[in-house]
Every structure is written in C-alpha cells, then in structure tokens.
Write a protein that binds this DNA or RNA. Structure first.
Length: 315
DNA sequence: CCATGACTGACAACGCTAAG
DNA sequence: CTTAGCGTTGTCAGTCATGG
C-alpha cells in the first residue's frame, strides 16, 4: 500500500458566476502529488499542468494566488490525458491524502464533467490532513491553512505555496510528523458519489462515535421521515437508545437529538442534510457517546432556541 | 366558525474559516 | 470572486390548543 498525497489548483469563470458553466464551476489546471511508502517516505512525485478547455482566462483572484501564467497553462495536456496519467501513476492499492476536503470533490466534479467518473470509485476513503492536523496538534477540528501547519511544526519553507507539487510536498511533510495512530483513527469518507441504494449505505464505527451515510431521498422531509435515518442506536451495544430529546433543527442543514441507553448512558445524535448535484438529499448522521454535562448542554441549547423564538414573538 | 398565542420547521442571509 | 463547512440571526408560514 502507498499513500498518494495530492493537491490540485483550479480556476473559475473570470467573468463572474452569471457566465460560468454550471456543470464545472471550477476547472482543474494542475495536478501535483507525492507518493509515500508505508513508512511515509517519499518514493515518487508527480506534476502535470492541465490545458484549460472551459475558462481560458484566469479569474483575477486566482491569478493573484497562483504562481502560474497563461503560457505555462497552454503547454499542458488536456484534462482527460492529465487525469489518466495521474491515476496510472498512482497505481493500485493506494490511500489518498489531501489538505482539506475540496480537492476530492473537485477532482470528481471534473471527472464527471468529462464523463469519466467511473475512473475513480466512490465513496472514497481518504485522509484529510487538515482535519487530522487540527485533532493531533490543537485538539480540535480546526480549519488551518497549510502554511500555518508548516510554521506550527517548524518545517523549513524552501518553496513557495500555491503550486500543486509544492503544496503536495508540504502536505506530505506535515503528514510525516503526525502520529500514525491518530491519522488512521481519523480517516474521512468523501461522498461525492453518495450511496444510491439501501445496500450501498455506509455504517462505520470510530473511536467514540458512529457514522451513517444514507441513500438519497427526493426531499429533506422524506429523509427525516425514514426510520433508519432518525434511529439512534447505542454505539457500544447497538441496541436502540430511547430519545430524551427528539430531533430538533439547529438550522436548515442540521438536526440534533439526545438519546439514552440504560447500559451505556447518553448519546448525542447529529444529522447533516446534504444536497447532491442533481438536487436530491442524503444524510450524514453521527451518534456520539457523551457525558451528563454535554447532555445538559443539548437540553439548554434547545431551550435557548425556544426562548429566542418566544422573545421574538413578544416584540 | 374564527381569533389568538405558543410553538415548530423551513428558508435566506450573514459571518467566520478554509480552499482556488 | 466563488465554493464549502460550520455556526448565528431573522423572517415566514403552518400547526395546535384554547377561548369566544
């Protein structure tokens, strides 16, 4: 097994959102990657410029950020050839690693645009090193920039940022400094290719929480009516845990509930509603074991929401 | 039957971070 | 500038029980 630490650079419509191609808001213009062996030693590197086919001018903000000029881009290969070359270089039995979740999404959106999505089987299990850096170094799921992590870990800055290979290289350096147990425990699942049938639904167990990714539903309401979606099973014994506070909405996209297992205590349920490119909905549900104080916090949170509504009504 | 208050869920807008 | 995730705030329409 090898690790593929990759980074993408992309461009967007230079004339604003009105004139963009809806199926491809971001066009990939560069691949950069390093291949690591099981000991996280660098064994190979990859770099490929993609010749733009949709947006021929750089968006002014993209131009500011990236150290890449038009002539360089014109010398690139087509996306189709680039991505074939990249995936062939990756080889079999690899685990993808990135800085943040967006590279996986945009890679697949670009593949889909060129009707090549079958080249990458999903859902994709990968390591989001931005998230893992937060957990390992700051105890939180912080969202830090790559340069912040490089400074934090006192890694020498020999190259400029915001070129695909440089960033992939830096990401690999961060990766090498993170405890492997922490990395392995905190893998991510990209669901750009979300489950379509009951059979494809995902149930996974992490250290102190479980995750469930549902099939699609036509509307949010349909999703929130499904038995499996709204159920709360104890993450220790798998028995149905009784709700103390039923699902309530934090906002449009997320719901929270409190359940109790007589054997193993309080559980916090969280549902995030996600929309697919086609406008269907699926849910990502996590159930986490919590202590009494956290259970009280949920109740207080719900009461706070109620109070605020009450206050408004009196105005 | 209608009006009212209490409450709910759904939605948009904004503010923060990151990414390009 | 645009996306995405996370959160908050504000508005609105619908439900329910109550009371006339």
């Amino acid at each position: 097994m090898n690790y593929i630490v990759f980074d993408l650079e992309w461009n967007q419509c230079p004339y604003g959102k009105d004139r963009e191609n809806k199926r491809l808001p971001f066009e990939i213009i560069e691949f950069g990657a390093v291949k690591l062996d099981e000991n996280r030693e660098v064994i190979d590197k990859f770099q490929q410029i993609v010749k733009p086919a949709v947006y021929h001018r750089l968006h002014y903000r993209t131009k500011e950020i990236l150290n890449i000029d038009k002539n360089t881009l014109e010398s690139g290969l087509s996306f189709s050839k680039s991505v074939r070359r990249f995936l062939r270089w990756c080889g079999e039995d690899v685990v993808f690693c990135t800085w943040g979740p967006t590279d996986l999404i945009e890679l697949q959106r670009n593949l889909k645009y060129y009707t090549m999505l079958h080249f990458l089987e999903g859902p994709v299990r990968y390591y989001d090193l931005q998230k893992i850096f937060g957990i390992a170094c700051e105890g939180k799921k912080n969202c830090r920039s790559l340069e912040y992590a490089i400074d934090f870990l006192k890694i020498e800055k020999t190259e400029s940022f915001h070129r695909a290979l440089h960033d992939a290289w830096y990401t690999a350096e961060v990766f090498a400094k993170l405890p492997i147990e922490v990395v392995e425990k905190n893998y991510s699942i990209d669901t750009y290719q979300n489950p379509k049938s009951k059979k494809e639904e995902i149930h996974v167990m992490f250290e102190n929480y479980s995750k469930y990714i549902s099939r699609e539903f036509p509307t949010k309401e349909d999703a929130m009516k499904d038995r499996e979606v709204v159920s709360t099973k104890c993450i220790v014994c798998n028995n149905t845990a009784k709700k103390k506070i039923r699902w309530f909405s934090m906002n449009t996209k997320s719901h929270v509930c409190l359940a109790y297992c007589p054997e193993h205590g309080y559980l916090k349920g969280k549902i995030r509603l996600k929309k697919t490119d086609e406008g269907n909905y699926y849910v990502v549900k996590t159930v986490k074991k919590i202590n009494e104080e956290e259970a009280v916090e949920i109740r207080e949170k719900r009461n706070l929401l109620r109070e605020k509504r009450r206050e408004k009504r009196h105005q």
